[in-house]
Amino acid sequence: MSIDELVQGVLNQKRRYLARLISLIEDEDIQAMEALSQLYKHTGKGHIIGVTGPPGSGKSSLVTKLTAEFRKRSKTIGIICVDPSSPFTGGALLGDRIRMQEHSLDDEVYVRSMGTRGHLGGLARATSDAVRAVDAFGKDIIFVETVGTGQSEVEVVDVAHTVIVTDVPGSGDDIQAIKAGIMEIADIFVVNKSDLAGADKKVTEINAMLDIDPKEQAWRPPVLLTNARTGEGIPELVDNILAHLEHLKGSGLLQKKGLQRSRDELQELMKYKLTKELSQKLQGKPEYEKAIKMIAKRKQDPYTVAEQLIAEFLFSETR
């Protein structure tokens, strides 16, 4: 399959080409970048919604129900589910589709499961490129679902226009996690499984925490109750998601975010390229290996060697 075919296939909304492109992105194939650079001008239309929260907080079920509601409102949907890969084997068990069966034959819904792998460019690179591919494909709404257990979700939400943080009643310890990491990134809080005892208490707790946030907020994140099993609260959640997008547009934040994102991405890409190039050039070079040994023996220091190697391998035209 040539790059042109791939690009045309994606633009003509052929699912197999989209699947192929995302595979190339995941495999960090050089063709992926070429295709994406051609597709770039066709992106920027989709509303990207990040969904994150602790394991067991019903993210996939919530995304499934949100998809149903958006489909009722005639929107087309792309879903990227990111699950951790094993750091030891590199393998991953990706089970989010289990909970998304009701859309499994809907032509307007595309679901893709991704493992975090050990990407050179970090998780954000592959995920945001996959999102971009789905965007170019023409989906109106693109969900990015990640497990909120560490740093990764914070990276991923850089991609999203609207970030939903989910939690469930009774998970006392998780509130700490929210405090620590992802409180700041939420545009909407969802307390899922509203039928469980303690749901209202959880809402109150999160609201209380939002209230002590000292900075002036043009958008006060709403805290919503949902039940992804019965669908309760889902239409309200969709209304809030759309309201958030309107807020972004109206306040000029969308533009501002877009600029910031382009800046970040450009820097990120240059860093990635440079790192990759450097590591390729240094690979197996005797002077590189020798320098490492010298540093270990305290015969040389890493500060000087780093400067020298960069100057020699990255910026010297003769190599």
């Binding site: 197999r16 595979s23 068990l93 589709r97 069966q101 499994s104 595309y110 893709r112 499961s113």
Partner: peptide, 24 residues
């Protein structure tokens, strides 16, 4: 070391094929 996508029980042939294609 593989990435395994599991779709659960009660899959029709259409669902299996769709999932296989979308997931590459």
């Amino acid at each position: 070391g593989m990435e395994v996508i599991y779709t659960g029980l009660r899959q029709t042939p259409e669902m299996v094929v769709r999932a296989a294609l979308d997931e590459g």
